[in-house]
Simulated assay, not measured.
Amino acid sequence: MIQTGNLQLRSQHPVATTGGDASTFTRVEFPTPFPAGSDVIVHATTQTFDAPDTPGIRLHEVSETGFLIRFNELFGAGTKSNGLHGLETVGWTAYTV
């Protein structure tokens, strides 16, 4: 079973640095839940280039019913991101293995 979708995503929060804290993530529900007990894989990619900084994508709590997602801007060459990122389109694919 394969499912796909896209969403508009932005980050209005500082960079997430505490493991397990998903309070700033956005919930995505699959159109059709995968069968119970499935090992679900999600692949997400930014499909636009509307904001100037490079957005890293973080996924959390992938399950048969959906997943959590957020931007977490990348650190680079000694520069720290503030974590804020403008609106972008993110496409995702979910499948079982």
Score class of each variant (00 low, 15 high):
L74N: 11
T79F: 13
L7P: 12
G20S: 10
Q12S: 15
A36R: 13
H13S: 14
P35V: 02
S23M: 06
I69P: 03
F25V: 06
S23R: 14
T46D: 07
T54V: 14
R27D: 10
G83V: 06
L7W: 10
H85W: 04
L59T: 05
G37F: 01
E61A: 13
T24Q: 15
P31H: 04
I69A: 00
G76W: 13
P55I: 09
L9S: 03
I57P: 14
E64Q: 11
A94E: 07
G86E: 12
I2W: 05
G86Y: 14
P52L: 03
P31R: 07
T4Q: 09
G66L: 08
G20L: 05
G5H: 07
A16D: 14
A44L: 02
G76A: 15
F30C: 10
I41C: 09
Q8D: 11
T24H: 15
F25C: 14
V15Y: 09
D21S: 05
T45S: 14
Q12M: 13
T18Q: 12
V90K: 00
L74R: 10
G83D: 07
T24A: 14
V42P: 00
Q3H: 04
L68V: 00
I2H: 10
W92S: 06
A16N: 14
M1E: 04
P31I: 00
F49A: 15
L59I: 09
F67Y: 12
N72Q: 11
P33E: 08
A44R: 00
T26I: 05
L68M: 11
N82F: 00
T45E: 15
E61V: 06
T46P: 09
K80E: 01
G37D: 01
D53C: 05
A94Q: 07
F30D: 13
G86V: 05
I41W: 10
E73R: 14
H13G: 02
G86T: 06
D53H: 07
T48L: 01
Q8K: 12
M1P: 08
E88L: 03
A22D: 12
D39S: 12
S38E: 04
G56P: 04
T26A: 08
F71P: 06
A94D: 11
A77T: 13
P31K: 02
N82H: 01
N6F: 06
A16M: 10
P35H: 04
F67T: 03
Y95M: 08
R58F: 06
T79E: 09
T54I: 15
G19A: 13
A51D: 14
E73K: 14
T79W: 11
F75I: 03
F30S: 13
W92Y: 06
L84T: 01
F75K: 12
G56Y: 03
L59W: 02
G37E: 01
A94C: 09
G91Q: 05
L84H: 05
G83T: 05
A77P: 05
G20M: 03
R27Y: 03
H60L: 11
S81F: 02
E73N: 14
I57H: 02
